[in-house]
Amino acid sequence: MCQAGEARRPLPLMFVWLSACLAAVCFLSLLFGAGEIGPGASLSSLLGMREGAAQHAEEAAFVIHELRLPRTMLGLVVGMALGVAGALLQAVARNPLAEPGLLGVSAGSAFAVAIALMLGASAATLRVSVAQLGALGGCLCVLAAARMRGVGNDPVRLVLAGAVLSGLLGALTSMILLVDQRTADEIRFWIVGSLAGRHLEDLQAILPSLALAGVITLLIGRPLAALALGERVAVGLGHHPRLVRLLAIGVVALLVGATTAVAGPIAFVGLVVPFAARALAGPDIRRTLWLCLPLGPLVVIGADIVSRLVVQPSELPLGVLTALIGAPVLILVVRSQRLPTL
């Protein structure tokens, strides 16, 4: 990891570099899968070369366009949303460990969807708003915990509070599973996230709220950076800390709810990505947010590629893999001597 002193590299250059890496990973994501269409066959199909039997070429085209391309696009969106949501939540909670998955925001979202499913809802659009409402509830719990004495200024305690919330919501979700086993398979999806088998229509359903979240984020970037200097400084500069915080929480709920609705809860992305982005860009939240955009999908799609390759012919749920990547980072952050207060 970079030291803080090195973090003065020009932002546009880093952004371009990371975007190039992301493009490469997206390309790899089209080449590799759990099926029989290997990288060679995929490459020739992408280049338009007709190799071997027509049926084989048709199979390759189907796998690439209908299976790998949608999940890559989904990974792009989910990665960006989770990266940004993590960075915002950390800025608002002033805590480098604040992460939607760790603090129960994703769990709140998944729980809300599980309840909606149990009550018989099935429409994709409804699911998005329900997931966002659940995420908002989770966010407010987090914020309340962060403002409690002794919790807010101790990052690790906040994570403990979040773990309690996650555990509680997880238990409630399991209880729904017990009460209503008929929807068990549907709900099981909401316990560990995955990019496989989702429809592009689902992606369309969340685009409006993602756009809204993007606009608000652009507006609150500067006040958030000011808030990092302290509440009084921000007020002195003419900002409204309470409003800014509220807006940021709203954005986190929009983003996390949307990703949970399409991909289920995916933990630790919101921790790992801002952590790496800060290491590269320094403490300014605006710089961090820009780098989260390419870094988020980089982590998500990278993990997704691995999830396809490790247990062929099956696939590992993405949420399992991000947890495997994220847990060591969490330990690293907690154990590092200078736990930064944001």
Partner: peptide
């Protein structure tokens, strides 16, 4: 039973007859 089969490998269950079990 197996773990969830990757969608890329669904052709492995492309038999003459496919029995689809549901819990409801």
């Amino acid at each position: 039973h197996s773990d969830p089969l990757s969608l890329e490998n669904l052709s492995r269950i492309d038999s003459d007859w496919l029995f689809l079990a549901t819990l409801n």
